[in-house]
Design a protein around this nucleic acid. Structure first.
Lengths: 233, 233
DNA sequence: ATGTGACCGATTGCATACAACAATAAACAG
DNA sequence: CTGTTTATTGTTGTATGCAATCGGTCACAT
């Protein structure tokens, strides 16, 4: 049998992962405001676990830039990086251009290899579903679903690039971008989403230059849109 | 008295930090080769501490991309990201251009503020010492000191930019670059180092455009030099 | 009144102990 | 002999307890 197992059960995530995701969510969506002191003990009580998983979650969130810690002195929620927005977007442009270019290069090799197995194809199929879900959300007017789908799309492209380094960098930047957008509603909505299929097509066509060009423009528009709405002078 | 305390004693770092730095060093300089399985217990014995500090160090190194872990299954040393080199350099160009630009912008504000206190001035003074040390090393022919000084210079500029997000990103990329360069000797040595003073001068002059231009060129030359020597076709 | 020093509570850092899970190897049916 | 199930071992995940350190507060001298 060559069938891939049906994407093994999501199951319930490990406590540490769950706690980490919950705290990050609370930070991004404002129930934990910047400057708030977060202590391991109270978080442990809040989530019904010991201090250890909380501790690990805080360390991970520190690496992601959501909290800052000083030895023996505790942790506080970081400031929203609004001043860094423009620079983060400029780095993101270079970064995602690279992931799209690489993804297209790899696509050619994968298609010529024949058998649609392996991790590349699994991710590619997930992206196909993702694009469908997004189109459906747009058609139904559920634009509030788009930010989440959007991030997953871009991270998916990074995975297709096959570079763990670039994927990790994008994950870090995406967290910040999501934070910046948390108070936003539109995010260019439909227009932005429709561009995703064009990028995907360029990758499937094994055209690195075109994939890079489309992705760079896509991200650049996102940057311009953000600055227009927020840093409006 | 307004004198800053003479940069409080370095003291000896906390066990976790020490272990983390040691493991990373062993990975970068080859005594822990890619693919090696690393278990918490043996590392704990090796460094004479409990599993907990080792565990935290491994998690941090995972976030930095030096090891990969799967739940309940252990950790292994990552592969050296040679395939990602060119893309990492391209992201680094955008990233460091941004830090230099910001640093120059902030410099103007700091100089006009008057009193040479605060964290900005402390970092600026450390950079002055760093530049002197580097010149001395070049004059004495101790080129093997340059890679370390080089990284500290670039991270210092990032700190001057005042953006924690950008500094964290650069720290992550720098680790990978250092890894790539570990087998190298030259790193353009003298020529590259002399450019640092030009960049610093542009920042001190409060000239963002010039600082960005010089830094971008500096990093680009580093990229070209690397590709010439390693990815030589 | 103000600056300076030593104490005390709060919080993290680390060590030990136990539980949960994955991977490998062995036993067994076909 | 091959494929599958089961046992065992090794490793990580989590809980609890104690030691180290920080931040603030209060007394106190100037």
């Amino acid at each position: 049998m060559l069938n891939l197992p049906p994407d093994p059960s999501p199951a319930e995530p490990a406590p540490k992962q769950r706690v980490q995701d919950e705290i990050r969510h609370d930070i991004i969506f404002g129930s934990l405001q910047p400057g708030t002191r977060v202590t391991e003990a109270v978080l442990a009580a809040k989530y019904g676990v010991s201090r250890i998983p909380v501790r690990e979650a805080l360390r991970a969130l520190e690496a992601e830039g959501f909290v800052e810690s000083k030895p023996y002195a505790g942790s506080t929620v970081s400031e929203i990086p609004v001043d860094d927005a423009d620079d983060l977007f400029s780095v993101r442009e270079a970064l995602e251009a690279a992931t799209a270019r690489r993804a297209a290069r790899r696509a050619a090799a994968q298609f010529s290899a024949g058998a649609p197995n392996g991790v590349w194809w699994r991710v590619r199929r997930q992206l196909a579903d993702l694009l469908d879900d997004g189109d459906q959300a747009v058609a139904a007017g559920n634009l509030e679903l788009l930010p989440e789908l959007n991030i997953r799309f871009h991270l998916g492209i990074a995975e297709l690039s096959g570079s763990a380094s670039l994927t990790a960098l994008l994950r870090q930047i995406s967290g910040k971008i999501e934070w910046l957008y948390a108070t936003d509603v539109d995010n260019r909505g439909k227009q932005s989403w429709s561009e995703h299929r064009l990028i995907m097509a360029a990758i499937d066509a094994g055209n690195p230059a075109e994939a890079e060009r489309l992705m760079a423009g896509h991200v650049h528009q996102s940057r311009v849109g953000y600055l227009d709405r927020f840093a409006a002078p």
